[in-house]
Design a protein around this nucleic acid. Structure first.
Lengths: 138, 138
DNA sequence: TCCTTATTGATAACGGTTTTCATTTTCTAC
DNA sequence: GTAGAAAATGAAAACCGTTATCAATAAGGA
């Protein structure tokens, strides 16, 4: 009966507990990339009693399942935000408030694959992040 | 006398001490992105007595001055390598050995600026890193 | 309900990096 | 060459985000 590591369509893992429900609802409303600690603080602000460890754990699972996107700020801290689009995409993120827009760039994917191949690399992956200041923060 | 938050004036300060000289020579020879601790270990291997703190400090200054490039591996650790070309560029880096090739991509810079502008962002910056497995490691 | 197993969370540990601060070294001025 | 001020060094401690521990709790099927 253990069905722990079932494939499970993405996102369905984190359901069933009060804590997961609360986290999901906070994530659904947060418009900006936020740190695990910020998310935890937001939960407490709402009166939800969820341990910080649990927040980290859930976010880890969610990001593996593709339910949340992650980026790293300049200090190296990991920031999370619920994923809007399901395919491969990148972000334009505000340095000040964390607000973020998802963008596609097929040309970029092709470029990355090409230059890597030219350099003799295989099994290629890439990270592209764009930072700036959004209208409100400028 | 605190000197913490204004470490040193500016410019190419890293010269003049035995430690800086040793670090510069190690950096010149290391072909791969390496962590501060790896670089420190390499210094010790060569019989140079340089403190880990000093390695971190020098690398920080060098990266600010553009003398070394930095990337972050998947665990969040910062890796350093002496900068080969002087202009803006990106890297194709081997996940296994850290070996890296510098590449240019004017099309990518333009793309990043454009999508950011379209999203209403200003003061735009971007990070692009490509990872793969190099010929030797594949 | 009972029972097995997964989940939770307070706390401790971890690991990379930065701070502290007393000591050493460098550099400039004699 | 030497003195003295300023900068650099480095061992140790602090820092801080994150992960591991593990006893207690909660969930869901029989």
């Amino acid at each position: 009966m253990p069905m722990s590591s079932q494939p499970m369509s993405r996102g369905t893992r984190v359901r069933g507990t009060r804590q997961a429900e609360a986290l999901g609802s906070v994530l659904a409303e947060l418009p900006a990339f936020s740190s695990a600690q910020e998310i935890h603080a937001e939960l407490r602000r709402r009166g939800e009693r969820v341990g910080l460890t649990t927040v980290y754990r859930q976010l880890q699972v969610l990001s593996q399942d593709g339910g949340v996107d992650t980026i790293r700020d300049e200090s190296g801290e990991t920031l999370y935000r619920r994923c809007r689009s399901s395919g491969h995409h990148h972000h334009v993120t505000c340095r000040s408030c964390g607000r973020s827009v998802e963008v596609e760039g097929r040309a970029i994917e092709r470029w990355a694959d090409r230059v890597a191949a030219e350099a003799g690399f295989v099994d290629v992956d890439h990270t592209v992040e764009i930072f700036g200041r959004c209208v409100d923060c400028a």
